[in-house]
Nucleic acid binder design. Sequence first.
DNA 1: CAAGGGACCTAA
DNA 2: TCAGTTAGGTCCCTTG
Length: 712
Amino acid sequence: MQQSKIAYACQYADDELQLLELLLEKVRYYDPDLLVGYELHNSSWGYVIERCMIKYEINLIEEFSRIKRNDTAAMRSDSWGYRKAAIFRIVGRHLLNVWRIMRSEIDLTSYRFENIAFHLLHTRIPHYSYQTLTNWYTSGGPTLKEKVCRYFLDRVQKNLELLDVSNMISRTTESARTFGIDFYSVMTRGSQFKVESMMLRIAKPENFVLISPSRKQVGEMSAAECLPLVMEPISQFYTSPVLVLDFQSLYPSVMIAYNYCYSTCLGKVDTTKRDFVKKDDLKYGMDMLDIPSDILQLMEKHINVSPTGLMFVKPSIRKSLLAKMLSEILDTRVMVKRTMSEHENDKGLHRLLDARQLGLKFLANVTYGYTSATFSGRMPAVEIADSIVQTGRETLERAIEVINKTEKWKAHVVYGDTDSVFVHLPGRTRDQAFDIGNDIADTITRMNPVPVKLKFEKVYHPCVLVTKKRYVGYKYEDRDWKEPQFEAKGIETVRRDGIPATQKMMEKSLRILFETKDISQVKSYLQDQWMSILSSRVSEQDFILAQEVRLGEYKEGYESVGARVAMESMKLDPRAEPQYGDRIPYVIVARGPNEKLRDRPMTPLAYMSDRYVSKHVVFLLVKYFLNLVWKSSSLRLDSEYYIRKQIIPALERIFNLCGVDVASWYSQMPRRKQALAYSVSQLAEYSNNSRTIEQYYSSRHCIVCRKISDQG
DNA sequence: CAAGGGACCTAA
DNA sequence: TCAGTTAGGTCCCTTG
C-alpha cells in the first residue's frame, strides 16, 4: 500500500458526541469482524468505551455489538480477560489486543509501540506525550493540528501492518482449521482445549468417550516419578568441534513407537512375576485398572512393557488413539513442508502452508503435556506421562552409551538435556566432525524403533559449555558454511533481565575469544569498555533494565524492582498502571552508600528529564550555572553497580572457565586512571559547555525527523 | 555469613 | 468458567 498517497475521506464533527456517533456509524457501516487496538484497556477502544459511559452514559459495548442484548454489564471485573485478552467483550466481533499478541509472538525487552514497530516494521517512529499532543491540538496552528491527526492515523495504520507482517491473522485461522476450534479460542484458550478438540475428532469414529474427572479426582492423582535426563556438562572452553544431535520430536515419536496411550494401557505388571501386583497399586489416572488375568494371558505375546512397568498392547492389536493422531499430525506436517518447498515463489501460499505446519508442530509438542497436566489438567494420566518420560530418558541414555563406547568415533559425550547430546571430538577437523556426526545419527536412529530419529543438527566450533542449560558457540549447520553463526543458549546475551551493555560486551568478548583464542585481547577490550563506562562515554540506553510486572500477584513486601517503579509512577498518574505482564524499564542511580538496590531505581524518562532540564540551549546554560552550585545533587547512573553486579559476574561465569579472573582485570585497572577518567567526565559534564551541548544534541535529536525532540 | 524464599527468565 | 510440564541458574533480601 502507498501510505503517503492515500486520500483520506474526512468527515467533520462539531462536538465530541457527534464524533462518537460518527464512530458508531462507521462501525455499523463497515461491520468489521475484528476491532484492533494496540492496547485495549486504557487506550483505543477501551478508552472510548469508558469515556462514553462516564460522560454520556452510552454503553458502546452494546452499541458495537452485532446482537442487541439487555443484560450487558459495562465493564465487569474479569481477571481472566485481564490476563489473557480484553476485560470487555463485544458480541459478534473479536477484539485484538495488539501488544498482547506481540508479547506472545516475539521476545522483546520492551513492548512499547515504537519498539515493536522498530523490530517488526523496521521503521523508527516518534513518540509524543499526551501533554504535547494536547498542546499542539488545542493551542497550535493548523500544521500542528494536522500533525496530531497524522500521528494517530499513522499508528492506526501501523497496527494493521504489524498484524500483517507477523502473519497473525492467517496463522490463527489456519490453526483454527487444524485444531477444529474457533478463531478467538486459538488466541485465548490453552493447549489442552486444542489437543482435546483434535483428539475428539479421532475418538468419535471409534466410539470412544473421554472421561472427565473432577478437580478433586485430578488432585488426588499420583505425582510424577520420572525425570528427564539433564547431564551436568563438562564445563570448559572447547576448541575442537562439538557435535550437537537431538531426537526429533522425541516424546511424540516415543508415543507412536511404543503405542503409549489411554486407549492401549493394560495396567501395571509385576516385573518379578510378570503377574498382577496388589490392587492398591493399580491406580491409573483417576481410576483403577483391573484387566482380568485370563485376558492378559491371551495378550501376552502382544504387549510392550514400559520402563515404569506399565503394559500397553502392541499396534497390531489396537493402534493407539494418540499414536493415530500424532502420526497423522507428523505425516501431514511432512507433506505440508514438501508442498511448501514446491511453492517457494507463491509467497501467499507459502505463508499459509507455513502457518499450517507450525500449527501441527505445536500440537505434536503439547500432546505429551496434556497427559502430564496435573495442576490444571482435565484428563491427565501421570502413569502414561511417566512411561513417556522414562522411555525418552532411556533412549537418550542408550545413545550416550553407544556414542561413548564406539571406538572408531573416539568421541566423548560432554552434555545432554532431555533429547539432545553434545559430542566432543578432540583433535578432529570440522570436516571430519561432519562425517562422524552423520554416522552417529544413522547408527543411533537404526537402534531405535520407527519413528524415533536422532538428527545431526550442527557443529559448534569452538564453544563454551557453562552450566546446565547454558552454553554458547560458533555454529556450523553444514560443512560448506564459510562463516559460522554466533549462537547462545541461556546465557546473558539471550536473557532479558540484564542490560544491553552486558549483552553487547559479552557477545563481543566471546567473539574475540572464538576468533583469536587470545585472552589478552579480551582483557584489553574489556578494560577499554569499563573505562568508557566510568567516564560516561557510553549511551545511557545500554543501561536500562526492564522487568515483566504482574501487579496483584506479589506477596506483601516482595514486589520486584520493576513493580516498585510501576507503583511509584501510578502515584503520580493512576492511568499509568501497567498492563498485566507488561515490561517496566528502569535505571539504577547512584545514591548514598547504604541505600538498598530496590530504593534506587528510576524510570528512564524521569532520569533523563532530570539530567537534561529543558529543550532550549539557553535553558541548558542556565542549568549549567545552576549545576556549578548544585553539582552534587545531580543524578548519575551507578556505574560501579552496573560493572560489579551486572557486567562482571556474567563475564566471570564464562571466562573463569578459561582460567582467568575477570574481577581482577577490573581492579587491576589503575585506580588513579579510574579516578582521572571519572573526574574528566565530571569536568566535561559540568565545565565544558561545548561538550555538554554536543551531548545534548546527540541524544536529543529525534531520530525520525532530525529535529530536537522534547521527549526522553 | 550461610541458608532459604521470592521473583525472573530461559531450555527442553 | 476460561490454566501443558519440570529443571535450572541467578539475584536480592531476610533471618538465624
